[in-house]
Amino acid sequence: MNQLGPSAGRAFGPLLAGILISIRSVTAAFFGLTALYFVTVIVTMRLPHSRPTFVQKGSAIQQIGQGFGHIRKTPVVFWVIFLQAFSLIFFGMAFPVIPAIAVEVLDTSEVQFAWMWGAFAFGQAAAAIVLAIIGGIKRSAISLLAAVLLFSVFFVFLGLTDNYWFALVFLFGMGAALPLWGATLMTLLQHFTSPE
């Protein structure tokens, strides 16, 4: 569910914006965004009151210090944080590359570009559903390896293609790698850290 929510937003958000831009203008897309923010505010205000089950002691700086202390004492958490921070710097370059490919190579319309993000998000959602059905992959290392290989292979194919439909397939594959990566890292963090 943690993967499905954002992927639904990434699928339908760009699609709706693309449709608004193609049938009206960029201004219409911003008005649509404002309307969505308004709905979000109303929904947030209607959320029931809840109290956190655990209240953290100390300032934010102290909590960060305690976090670093825990990482120093727990090597596996150190390497999970290392993977999250440094692999994201490299694999995250896909995000500026996708619009560049859409404009410079595929020459897409607004809606076609929106479908590119949609394919990425549908891949993410599909993999999240499959993982939920099969109960996840037991070996975290295998799951992480599968994620980086899947993402890398499809990303290279995306960089090589000049066919829009192939690009959608490759983006779907790249999106499918995200739940394997994100869910595994979060599971490892939860497993090796106490609730505080």
Binding site: F90, F91, V97
Partner: peptide, 27 residues
């Protein structure tokens, strides 16, 4: 585009394998 894609893939894979080789617990 292509040099950026290759930098991203090679860099990301390098970071991943550094972590996997260095951490027995992660492996």
């Amino acid at each position: 585009i292509m040099p950026t894609v290759l930098t991203a893939v090679i860099g990301g894979l390098t970071v991943f394998f550094i972590a996997i080789v260095a951490s027995k617990e992660l492996r």
